[in-house]
């Protein structure tokens, strides 16, 4: 019967895919019409530029003179460019600094705010506030908070002799405040995901664990953590991707001292890419950097997807 109902032309097949009855087809068309503006916008302002990045990456183009095909020169240059290596190292350092701390803190806050505390909704909102605050505004405020001598952080650290610390200038320190602000800004979002995950854990499991004699830590270790692992996986993947793309904090927090950090110490891959494109007018080279960044993120994400079966526990699999 299936063969009979299979439509012959492509158009008919497409129409059929929308639904089997005229009514459901009309509904589906409505749906398509409603998502069309967004999809078209995404295609023209995101899809096409992404595709163009591929062709630009094999060209030399300063945005004014006609582009010139240079083959893989841009990628060859990347390999021997010390500044690219530095930007990559800085980005990896930021990931190492930010991701574990961000995930642990978000989990801790979520677990605490999942307890029946008084005013927990207010606290949840407070933790979420940085997420909806403009990164630029937040970074400007943090810049003054971190100022040596005059900033609040310096005042607080004065008793331990760190009042004169040049957080945003010292090449060895500058990634710490950038990671801290990035964590501070993403914590609320991660917390919400964790909270949703926590609330979907059935209460019977805790009850059963308690009957079996599990203490507070035991319940957390053997019920919460495994049940939460799909959520944790999602949070980790997103945190890694976001850390790869840290830009605003670097741009704003180093703007008033040395843009990109002294000797490039705060330059991340995205910031490096931006400078090559918009300061040095090397759009071909910048596109090559963008593609490498894309490949890196893709690789890391696929890697995470591969190893998840060793630690992520999906309820359905147990049947």
């Amino acid at each position: 019967m299936i063969t009979e109902s299979r439509p012959r032309t492509l158009a008919a097949r497409a129409l059929n895919a929308l639904g089997s009855t005229p009514l459901s087809r009309r509904k589906a068309l409505w749906g398509l019409a409603l998502i069309a503006p967004n999809t078209l916008g995404l295609f023209f302002f995101f899809g096409i530029p992404v595709l163009m990045a591929f062709s630009t990456s094999v060209q030399e183009w300063n945005a004014i003179k006609p582009p010139r095909f240079v083959g893989l020169d841009n990628f060859e240059r990347l390999i021997s460019d010390d500044k690219f290596a530095q930007a990559l190292t800085n980005t990896l350092k930021l990931i190492a600094l930010a991701v574990p701390l961000e995930v642990l803190l978000a989990l801790g806050v979520a677990v605490l705010l999942n307890l029946p505390l008084r005013g927990r909704n207010l606290l949840r909102t407070a933790y979420f506030l940085p997420v909806v605050t403009s990164t630029v505004a937040a970074s400007v405020v943090w810049t003054s908070i971190l100022q040596p001598r005059y900033g609040i952080v310096s005042r607080l650290l004065e008793p331990v002799g760190l009042g004169e610390t040049k957080w945003l200038v010292e090449p060895g320190l500058v990634l710490i405040p950038i990671a801290a602000v990035a964590i501070w800004q993403r914590l609320g979002f991660d917390m919400i995901i964790f909270l949703a995950g926590l609330q979907s854990i059935p209460g019977e499991l805790y009850e059963a664990a308690r009957i079996d004699g599990a203490g507070r830590w035991g319940r957390f270790r053997h019920v919460t953590l495994p049940m939460l692992s799909p959520t944790t996986f999602l949070v980790v993947v997103l945190a890694v991707i976001n850390s790869f793309q840290i830009f605003d904090q670097v741009y704003i927090m180093t703007l008033r001292t040395v843009p990109g950090g002294v000797s490039g110490s705060a330059t991340t891959l995205t910031y490096f890419l931006y400078r090559r494109a918009f300061t040095h007018s090397e759009f071909g080279y910048a596109s090559a950097i963008a593609l490498v960044l894309f490949a890196l993120i893709l690789f890391v994400t696929v890697f995470q997807l591969t190893i998840q079966r060793y630690w992520v526990y999906y309820e359905a699999e147990e049947g």
Partner: peptide, 9 residues
Amino acid sequence: TVSEAGGAS
């Protein structure tokens, strides 16, 4: 110094 002046501008 730059830090004592409150910035590099």
